[in-house]
């Protein structure tokens, strides 16, 4: 992998000597050129802090960051070859769209007369051509986001950092933008480092995902791997739900309820359960069942057959089945984590 960003044992501590907060704890990651790489995790896990350190807006307490093999310690934000799309866009209110987008061009030595062409090109890229003279307060949320994007892209950065850029958009717009951003990234071939707390978003867009929790990276792998083969309980629980059964994890959608138990030596395993609750959700039905030892499991089954067929009222006995291949075994460390 041609490494664009090398994060080596980076730690960031905030706060006074008496009450320090470790926002990022000894994180090491390698991000490849042209990758769509996501930092995924709950609020406060350190993903935004890590991103800001890449941008140069924060300085690591220890460890180092290399961009294209160049050590970035001591390099201020305005001299780094990366650009950041801010969560709340940070558009300059006193400048119109064109001037916003053109803002950084003069530091690249672009002549004033060439600015217009570059601006138009960037706005076309994000499909906002024609809005040059609007002011930020005249734009919708989605439009502001594209301007912020254009403003960063016009500078042709090697790496684009995005801090939860879709967070303030409504569902439908969000999904549209996810597709657009992914397509854009593929087209431009720029390395994207994308911060989000939404696992669906990360799975949709990313080549690789680093799942973060309390300042640490729990797992960094290809998107499908993180989902199918979580290495810790936290990762399993963060990207979808997970049932912990006796040292391994099975996802609810991989479980099914039958009256009888599974045959020995087959592809499936089963355990006896008592049905506790059942919630009809249109596409799926969510079951809560209880194992003999008292542990609860969640089952999520698509309603492919008429509802009555799965009927299992509270208190009734059934068996829960799963394919052996869908059981993910965690090692000691993974079980402890999360």
């Amino acid at each position: 992998m041609d490494i664009a960003i090398d994060i080596r044992a980076v730690t960031k501590r905030f706060g006074e000597v008496t009450a320090p907060v470790t926002a990022v704890d000894n994180v090491s990651l390698s991000i490849g050129r042209g990758e769509f790489f996501s930092l995924l995790g709950p609020s406060g896990c350190g993903k935004t802090t890590l991103l800001r350190m890449l941008a140069g807006l924060e300085h690591p307490t220890s460890g180092s960051i290399l961009l294209d093999g160049r050590e970035m310690a001591g390099v201020p934000p305005h001299l780094r070859p990366v650009n950041l799309v801010f969560q709340h866009y940070a558009l300059f209110p006193h400048l119109n769209v064109a001037k916003n987008v053109a803002f950084g061009l003069r530091y690249q030595g672009v002549a004033r007369r060439d600015e217009n062409a570059r601006v138009a090109e960037a706005l076309e890229l994000v499909r906002l051509g024609g809005l040059e003279n609007r002011r930020p307060d005249q734009l919708s949320g989605g439009q502001k986001q594209r301007v912020a994007l254009a403003r960063a892209l016009v500078l042709k950065p090697k790496v684009l950092l995005l801090d939860e850029p879709l967070g303030a958009l409504d569902q439908k717009l969000r999904k549209e933008m996810q597709v657009e951003l992914k397509a854009l990234q593929k087209r431009l071939g720029i390395t994207f480092v994308f911060v989000t707390h939404d696992q669906d978003e990360a799975l949709t867009m990313s080549d690789r995902i680093a799942v973060m929790n309390a300042g640490r990276v729990e797992q960094a792998d290809a998107a499908a791997t993180v989902f199918e083969r979580p290495r810790t309980l936290f990762v399993a629980g963060f990207l979808g739900a997970a049932n912990l059964i006796d040292g391994f994890i099975v996802r609810p959608e991989k479980l099914s309820l039958r009256l009888e138990s599974a045959p020995e030596g087959g592809a499936f395993l089963s355990l006896p359960v008592t049905v506790e609750d059942r919630v009809y959700q249109g596409i799926n039905t969510i079951w809560t069942v209880r194992l003999d030892d008292g542990k609860r499991l969640t089952i999520c089954q698509q309603n492919t057959e008429p509802f009555d067929v799965h009927a299992g009222a509270a208190g009734e006995k059934r068996h829960v089945w799963w394919d052996k291949r869908h059981a993910v075994y965690l090692d000691e460390k993974g079980l402890d984590a999360g």
């Binding site: 941008a55 201020p76 934000p77 305005h78 801010f86 940070a90 300059f92 006193h94 803002f103 500078l155």
Partner: peptide, 24 residues
Amino acid sequence: TLLEASSDLGASGRGTFWRVVWPL
């Protein structure tokens, strides 16, 4: 964040002052 954006886009401290802080 406007100051940070300005810095991120390439403006030094003085550039950020005259182009962002002063007008605002």
